[in-house]
Design a protein around this nucleic acid. Structure first.
Lengths: 185, 185, 185, 185
DNA sequence: TATGAATGAGGCTTCATTCAT
DNA sequence: AATGAATGAAGCCTCATTCAT
């Protein structure tokens, strides 16, 4: 049993270090050897922990999304006032652009390199979590929560492709204002 | 005399037939031989018209975006009333989801397989065209036009990843309503 | 019949223009298209006059060696005195280093790209012609003529590989002196 | 632990086995797969030890020339008498025609497939070594040493192209006699 | 468990040659 | 006769994966 725990813990460590490599270079353009070099292990070792290259990708999105949600929860968690929550969400978004970019980029890599149902599964899970958090915490309807999430996805995606032509800060502010408008009493 | 061919015209024909292949399977997962088979030419012919595999991808986004813009313009063009324009835009969006998906998927492939500046260039161009059309035709501020475009990008992207969990029609309607709200008089 | 004459004449013109291309870049590294471009004809035309790429190479050595021999003969021809002949030969060598390089380079290309017997045939022919000229004109024994020819070949070959480390002029002079020594009375 | 291998040693072994293949068939006409088959390794392994096909060629000339020089040195080394040395050299030449052919053929392949400066570098090195050995050991002037080396190169080259029309033995004997003549006391 | 040498299928690209016009 | 678009076999090289140590 302790062995098992170590194994999983080590897997997570390896995944953490993969993230930047994958989002910078892209799954399809990284070789196993590059991954191994970055993680400072041999390719053989890598294959002890992951059966295939693809499995690294798939584990990674799972791993990353779990991290993000819990971070978000811990931020929103305390407060009760909706206005405050919206403010906290806005700040959370502003401070974690990089993280969102990584998730989107991973989703893209997964989309291009895994069967559709796996992508759908993984991304639906993430999408659902965020959307239900929004709708529950901010008291917004299902459909409107979706809209906000969609906007967020579009914003990050656009920023990835052309970072200089969209102001992340401005757009997040606009979203926050709209939320305040729609959410209140 | 050799076979008479309008090189540019033929290139465009080839590109047209590439589109579905690229968006379905993805640039990285299509082989030159598959492309050739799909286009019903030999690999040699392919290289007669495109110097590398990557150049096909790059030409394709250019090609596709040019097509889309002119289509959009021709639809909006006639009318003068802003309300009508919004309605037309909404219909245009509803009828061309597939096309938008293709553009987004191409942008993704380009992002993963071309130097950043090329992606930025190509996507910025598309983004600018749509945004300026929105801001000019619908009389909306720069920043708000961006927001709508961002939303559109997010919507299509989300639909690509998980088509069953977002209603395209509903979200487009909501966007239309918001536009009517913001645009008027 | 007049057609035939034109055809052969045209072939020779084409071959002439091939020579520099082949010796500069090498048979194996020139493409048919490059040859066609250099000769300012289409690849199709090229194939009207030569059945294969290899046949160009083979025709070329023949063509070039015929040229050289007659040139040499016309120079030596007039005089009767052996000393004068040696002097003329020496001058001929000095003024035609480039030509000898081309012949050697062609021989090399032929050697690497044609069946051994063809190379042997073509080069033996050239070798024989020069050697018999030397032995007859300069009154030297068979074997010694061979030695001089061998030296000449070595000199040109060495100059091709490392032009800066051997003085062509000096070595030709030394050869001339040796000839005078050996040939006399 | 992985298979224990002395990379450099193994590289040398591979090169050794390449030599005959290259000189028989020629660099340009051997495929990577043929090389691999001949060396009884996979193409992947080949690329594990050499970055490109061309690098094999380049390493090979280096490798071969180093071998030859040391062989030559070890033969000449002991004796002090110039006459004896000339005799030894003559024997060395007679017994190693094959080796000299290989070096010349490699030089030719290199010349046709590598940048000029690389060929010049490699061949100059070989030329220099032999020539300085001749001039030092046999007490001959720089220029005359060059002449002998040139003759040797020409002899081997001629033998490669038309082995039946030149007697290697006779020509080497003549060279030896000339050396004895020139070298004395 | 860890290593990295070995494998070989399969990718992209080139180019001699053919053939419709 | 002349053109150059079309062909596809074959070349070089990459890289996920396996396996001996």
């Amino acid at each position: 049993m302790p062995k098992i725990v170590d194994r999983d813990e080590y897997r997570r460590e390896l995944l953490d270090k993969c993230l930047s490599l994958f989002s910078k270079i892209g799954y399809g353009n990284v070789t196993i050897r590059e991954i191994a070099r970055e993680l400072e292990v041999s390719t053989g070792t890598l294959y002890h922990y992951f059966p295939t290259k693809k499995s690294i990708l798939e584990s990674l999105l799972e791993h990353v999304s779990v991290q993000g949600i819990s971070k978000y929860k811990s931020i929103i968690n305390g407060s009760k006032d909706v206005k405050v929550k919206i403010e906290l969400l806005s700040n959370y978004l502003l401070e974690n652009e990089e993280y969102f970019k990584n998730v989107i980029l991973l989703a893209v890599d997964l989309f291009r390199n895994s069967p559709a149902w796996k992508v759908d599964g993984a991304f639906t899970k993430i999408s659902l979590q965020y959307r239900s958090l929004i709708s529950e915490e901010l008291q917004l309807s299902e459909e409107i929560s979706k809209s906000f999430f969609i906007f967020l996805v579009g914003l990050v995606f656009h920023r990835i492709l052309t970072p200089d032509h969209i102001s992340y800060k401005t757009q997040v502010s606009m979203m926050r204002d709209l939320m305040l408008n729609v959410a209140v009493i």
